[in-house]
Design a protein around this nucleic acid. Structure first.
Lengths: 249, 249
DNA sequence: TCAAAAGTGTTGGCCATACACCCATGC
DNA sequence: GCATGGGTGTATGGCCAACACTTTTGA
């Protein structure tokens, strides 16, 4: 490669950050954790939690640290995976900032009390955020959308849906996760057959939980399986309507 | 966030690069494009092609530019998608370098003649590279492995397998792509049924191609479909043996 | 020169499985 | 009303056999 560079060839250093798309299910609705920005740019606007990557930590470690700082929870109990990097030159008016987005899935969590962090973090429903394109600062709206699609896709082929549930849960709890994340209604009978047939996905605890009304439901604990065999596919209509497909933007 | 930082808290700028995992199928074997490094570190070692992201370009643009520089081909004719970011503090001995890896899939391409670029780029079979863990410089062995798994997964749910084929191709050509990338044998009859049933995947050209021996095969052109409905799933054994699953490393 | 063999693509059938839809039952 | 379980028709996939078309081989 040539070592002499013209002005257009200039390569400078960039700031590296991580941003987190943290989903949970509360009140039968998908929520995402957002913070209210306390400084310019985008002062007062909602944004995804995140921060700078330190010199001595990996990207994964930075994501875990930010997760702990923003939610007060142990990231090792959540599902956490890298989404992708976003680095358009103009995405941050302060200069070149490349952010590595992470997707986190967890059960309905107690929020960090106000004061543990300067920024006020809170759960907000995802749907309204998707409809208003400029609801989030920077390009966080795009990141949120791609995080949602990744989460929807992950539910098909992996067992991460259980990450949305507490320690023990019923098949109906798990089904509600799928229904809320995918935005569809699922047949309880077929759903039960599929998730109980999958090996090492659900481990019966032997206990039962009595809902306000109706027959007591069996309680399960999460099994060691990571991949779903066979996968729980969204039906054609759902997949076509929601999937964005791969490729460059 | 606190503005006072201890030594451990230090956040500095990082260099941003893109690296490309470029796959093709030649002689019924999966190949990847590698270059031989012409300077330290890892002088003389094989590496994935890539380079620095310029100040005024997006990550995608940098990937397209590097692809053109290294292969001499128009990246818009290939399938190109971001894999993920790699940024461990020690991955480059020269300092903090965060690289954004891209996956590219294309038909068997003429290589750039020696001299267009200082580095000698060439196709090498993937399998031996996987078996020798330190065959590639930096953490490129990890990137290659994750790129391969992504490619294998993409073949299941999308129509990108056609990106490995020339303008017009036969069903058997397409089947060989699946067999080579997945490393399995597929039933010709079932494969034909599935790919021809998928809507807008294959468009018959009306022409036929006569192989060295045997019945002439119908020629197809790639259709506009991006997603495969229904998907062409790897069977349980194959998926279990090859898939790495999501999550942090 | 012609016929048989070999090789590859193409088509269709059979069967087991999996799923969607529906209904019955327990609490 | 909700969880659970079973039953049935349909769709799909795996396996297999037959057929179509061409080149090669050899008498």
């Amino acid at each position: 490669m040539a070592d002499s560079r013209t002005r257009r060839d200039r390569v400078g250093a960039a700031a590296i950050t991580v941003d987190l798309v943290i989903f949970t299910v509360r009140d039968d609705e998908l929520h995402v954790l957002v913070i209210e920005r306390g400084k310019e740019p985008y002062l007062g606007r909602l944004a995804l939690p995140g921060g700078h990557v330190r010199d001595d930590e990996t990207l994964d470690e930075a994501a875990l640290r930010e997760l702990a700082e923003e939610t007060g929870l142990d990231g090792r109990k959540l599902h956490l995976e890298q989404l992708r990097a976003y680095g358009d030159p103009g995405r941050d008016p302060r200069g070149r900032v490349v952010t590595v987005a992470y997707l986190a899935l967890g059960p309905d969590m107690p929020l960090p009390v106000a004061g543990t962090d300067a920024r006020a973090a809170r759960w907000v429903p995802v749907q309204p955020l998707l409809e208003e394109s400029a609801a989030l600062a920077f390009d966080h709206g795009v990141i949120l959308r791609e995080g949602l699609e990744r989460a929807r896709s992950r539910l098909e082929y992996t067992t991460v849906a259980a990450a949305f549930c507490p320690e023990t849960f019923t098949v109906a709890d798990l089904r509600r996760v799928y229904e809320v994340v995918w935005g569809v209604r699922l047949d309880p009978s077929n759903f039960r057959r599929k998730v109980t047939r999958a090996e090492r996905f659900l481990i019966p605890t032997g206990e039962r939980r009595t809902p306000g009304t109706g027959r007591p439901a069996a309680l399960y604990r999460r099994g060691p399986a990571q991949l779903l065999h066979p996968p729980l596919l969204r039906t054609g209509d759902v997949a076509r309507a929601q999937s964005t497909g791969p490729g460059l933007r």
